[in-house]
Design a protein around this nucleic acid. Sequence first.
DNA 1: TCACTTCATATAGCGTTGCTATAGGTGCTA
DNA 2: TAGCACCTATAGCAACGCTATATGAAGTGA
Lengths: 240, 240
Amino acid sequence: MSFDDQLPPKTRLLRAAAELLANSDGSPVSTRQITKLAGVTAPTLYHHFGDKEGLFDAVVSAGFEEYVAGERDFAPSGEPLEDVRRMWDNHVKFGLTQPHLYLVMFGNIRPESRPSIVADAEALLEEMLNKAAIAGQINVPPREAARSILAANVGVTLMLIAEPLEDRNLELSTMTRDSMIFAVSTETARGAATDDSGKSSVVVAAIALNAALQASHSDQLSSSELKLFLEWLHRISSSS
Amino acid sequence: MSFDDQLPPKTRLLRAAAELLANSDGSPVSTRQITKLAGVTAPTLYHHFGDKEGLFDAVVSAGFEEYVAGERDFAPSGEPLEDVRRMWDNHVKFGLTQPHLYLVMFGNIRPESRPSIVADAEALLEEMLNKAAIAGQINVPPREAARSILAANVGVTLMLIAEPLEDRNLELSTMTRDSMIFAVSTETARGAATDDSGKSSVVVAAIALNAALQASHSDQLSSSELKLFLEWLHRISSSS
DNA sequence: TCACTTCATATAGCGTTGCTATAGGTGCTA
DNA sequence: TAGCACCTATAGCAACGCTATATGAAGTGA
């Protein structure tokens, strides 16, 4: 029932809290559950952490170490913007594998006591974007870019967490990611300079036609034909 | 102390909850506070709303009406992407003027009970983006674009709410907004459907797609499929 | 007019929550 | 041995969301 009896109560509390936080599916975790699993009584918790939130903050810092470790782990690829992409993906992955921890870190927004976590994550991103800035690859100040990208990153992750598991579409993440990175980057080669300008105009036209068809309920095609037609359009327009 | 004694308890509960929710600075609002302010007792609340969350949901729907009203209020400018910008700004403004309501609507994410609000907001955005798609102004399907933009919009708003009032920088919002819109937009209509005459945009799009398909030798469809596809396109585009 | 149902509200209280006043035990230093 | 921190436990408070039960009001049919 209770934890490793060898370890000091402070550690047992931390582990118990982390475990319960990780296994409870979003529902709140009570101090009584934690202290029971840790094999201690209530005052011990408050002696060491002052607060339920204090305990959670401690858990979060531990979780954040893990997060930061993940963000730093890969060797810089020499391509800063590519590293930013990996940081983004790592962020989303962290949020999806540890949603409860993530919600405490980024979702549970209390005014005034804004967790320093967010600032730290921002700094991490900014650092990488700074390299991109030095390489002349972005067209906005790194700090602003970092804030903007992180905001979008958090928004996407929260949205994915909120979605039922079966229809979680990670494309939302990659698409938003690339949109944000593209927007701050200097490579203005917007299809006009790329060799697939013809293909991209196919995509644009297909999307436009798709939308127009659905809006106008065209009666030029039978419903079954229309269905197949739209499916093909989708195939074309979703391959970019 | 208590509310308008004339009004029915249900209304008084709604107003009391809304007022407390609006004035409590992020700290949770208890049912006892609400019922006391409304001048009723606990069972009345549960009779009408079943649940604390049910009451909050009701408050939120009222708030959402307001939100939607704000999103629809301005006349379409004829420039869909400009309207999307206004929807974004309106979203942020709503979040900042009613942060508590906003947190209940978008921030307080519980798995599986995802508020339909998010889906509704998504639909609203998608509707506008659909117009942009018809006008050939975006290069991703409207649904995906809507999800992506909304995610970023929520992320930005949450980040702004979490920030202390004095150093809230709205530029984060405009920058992220324009980044997202820029990333999904085609900037140059590129010969695709220009909405010069409303319904005929279907025809214009079909013609453009037809030309583009033949020019690019798309391999997304088999040759026989392509043949049929082009025939249908012809049928559509040749109908006035 | 009188039962009968239905809706709406109140009384009282259950179980759980975060947290604490108080006291006792333990080990270290003097 | 005495004193002093440090750490933990007993017991319990106030507040929480919620409900079993009862009471009143209003309408309905005989």
